[in-house]
């Protein structure tokens, strides 16, 4: 086992990193707004809308992500041929829908933590509901939710390992392949370090964001 072999293996694993980063970026960008939308719908005055949204959030959180991915990738085509997705699309869809439910819960807690007086102050100053939400409520909600958002983001990076279950090769897949090729388990250690590096970077970024948005 020489430095050259380690480099080759690391580069091989980096192919998997691309998928991880793509999933991470797209899923985070999609699931946070979607989650917030669900939070708002869960407070809607129309009761059936609330029930549906709450049931959705409940079911998603009560079942494994892997089964949800199976459902989208293998199950939906059975229901209707038009619902056949590529593995990557299915993954992006599945992760986004799943994480949206978690973010909806996080944002719900964040909203509850914003003092009623803040809505009232915004209202008596003449802000309408949309303005009050964007200028007054969201920033405060986000601040409260930030530690949980950090948590979810780190979990997301680790959860990307599940895409292998619907045939998308990612870091651990490449590590496994390298292990059987070389007959040595050190590729797993490299995978370990790659995940650690990505999440350390993420943690650092969120720490910075938390400091920056402190008041």
């Amino acid at each position: 086992m020489d430095a050259n072999a380690i480099l080759t293996t690391t580069l091989a694993l980096m192919q998997g990193l691309g998928v991880v980063l793509l999933l991470f970026a797209v899923v985070l960008a999609a699931s946070m707004p979607l989650g917030f939308f669900l939070t708002l719908l869960a407070r809607c005055r129309i009761l059936p809308v609330r029930w549906i949204v709450n049931a959705y959030i409940y079911v998603i959180r009560a079942t494994p992500l892997m089964l949800q991915l199976f459902f989208i990738y293998f199950g939906l085509p059975y229901i209707n041929k038009a619902l056949t997705f590529s593995a990557l699309t299915a993954a992006l869809l599945g992760y986004s829908l799943n994480y949206a439910a978690y973010f909806a819960e996080i944002f719900r807690g964040g909203l509850l933590s914003v003092d009623k007086g803040q809505y009232e102050a915004a209202k008596v100053l003449g802000l309408n509901r949309v303005q009050a939400t964007i200028k007054v409520i969201l920033p405060q909600m986000f601040r409260v939710a930030l530690p949980s958002i950090t948590n979810e983001s780190i979990t997301l990076v680790k959860d990307t390992a599940l895409v292998f279950s619907i045939t998308i090769p990612e870091i651990i897949y490449y590590a496994k392949a390298a292990v059987s090729r070389t007959g040595n388990v050190y590729p797993y250690a490299i995978a370990f370090l790659i995940y650690l590096a990505v999440n350390s970077l993420l943690q650092w970024f969120f720490n910075w964001l938390e400091r920056k948005t402190a008041y």
Partner: peptide, 29 residues
């Protein structure tokens, strides 16, 4: 809008500076 209100607990917007607390509503509304 013809009235303003001052609350017992101030209800300043904690995420905004004094300056932004004052100018944001005027600029937004």
């Amino acid at each position: 809008a013809k009235m303003g209100m001052v609350f017992q607990n101030f209800n300043l917007f904690p995420h905004l500076s004094v300056r932004k607390n004052l100018i944001m509503p005027l600029m937004t509304v």
